[in-house]
Design a protein around this nucleic acid. Sequence first.
DNA 1: ACATTAAGTTTCGACTCGAAACTAATTTTG
DNA 2: CAAAATTAGTTTCGAGTCGAAACTTAATGT
Lengths: 188, 188
Amino acid sequence: MKTKNIYNYIERIAELLKVSARQAGSEHGLQPVQLEVLGYLSVCNQFSDTPMAVTRYLGQTKGTVSQTIKVLERKGLVLKESDINDRRITHIKVTEQGSKLFQDNIPPKMFVNACQDLSYIQQKEIEASLKLLLMSFIKSNNMKSFGTCNSCRYNEKISDDSFYCKLVKVPLTLSDIALICIEHENIG
Amino acid sequence: MKTKNIYNYIERIAELLKVSARQAGSEHGLQPVQLEVLGYLSVCNQFSDTPMAVTRYLGQTKGTVSQTIKVLERKGLVLKESDINDRRITHIKVTEQGSKLFQDNIPPKMFVNACQDLSYIQQKEIEASLKLLLMSFIKSNNMKSFGTCNSCRYNEKISDDSFYCKLVKVPLTLSDIALICIEHENIG
DNA sequence: ACATTAAGTTTCGACTCGAAACTAATTTTG
DNA sequence: CAAAATTAGTTTCGAGTCGAAACTTAATGT
């Protein structure tokens, strides 16, 4: 059983990642969690940019998430927009400034350094292993997958650059389906 | 370049791990960080069980670590012991109760589930990939490795069950060299 | 012996986090 | 269709996290 070994490696890498995030964020007065939320909001689609989606993504309570978003808003990194159809819902849009901060700091430089020192084959192996572990984690514990439409069972290909979501019943473009969706469900 | 893909997977797994830790800890009123410190103290050797070592392991300031340890002490999970030779130094020993809590909750059950649903070959691949990524991370950013004596350049084998640390200049037993050391340096 | 360095604690202020009470909007149900 | 239930989100509270800086105590260097 390799469980403990794998756990120790993952745990340690996660710790180093947190150190990187702390370092990257501290230059802008951001906590690791705030950077994480900004990162999520920068890569999620239009159905998944709500406080409730962040709540599920981070596994925290809505009260906590509400606080964190308030801080991001105060710093001018995100904006709130009411949903037109359902006025209970708030969409959180990343501002120009927030987008720049995201691109400059995620992934953190320390992580980029680490990856660049690996061969392409090594990177592919690591990618495949992590994907496997993540999928197993989600499946074994009945968790939400939070992937992009590319790997979603509800995504239907219409042509080379047009798609259709069978769940939300909305047409999607090529750039849409590269974003993370809260309704994502793995194929099969 | 697979950097972003790898980052996304690692990031997501780390998040799920944190959710698991939160869940496991909440039954005992413990924060993820507290569980993490208890975990470290449960697997480190006699040179590495000090607040200063935890500070370097978690990449936090000594003030923060001092607080966290105070909480663990109040909950009866660890005990402080002054060093006999250098009275500035405090060793933190895990109590019986702390040890039980560690064994029951680390790795978290959700993680164990995920691993058990993988084949032995898959586990070995994941283990190798993570080791590679971690080593690269440490090397590329000149960080401390924090491994066990098994993989340390200062460890010298005397016989099958006796070893010697060339750095601290102290004999070690077979069970000693399975513990994490703050002075660890990878071979080569 | 005096200055410097190292380990650790304490205090402060901003932030995290869960729980619970709350508002407002939508949906369900009778 | 109106009352009840549900859902999204905010606010408040108390305990904890976290970095920075001031502080104590002990060891080391010159």
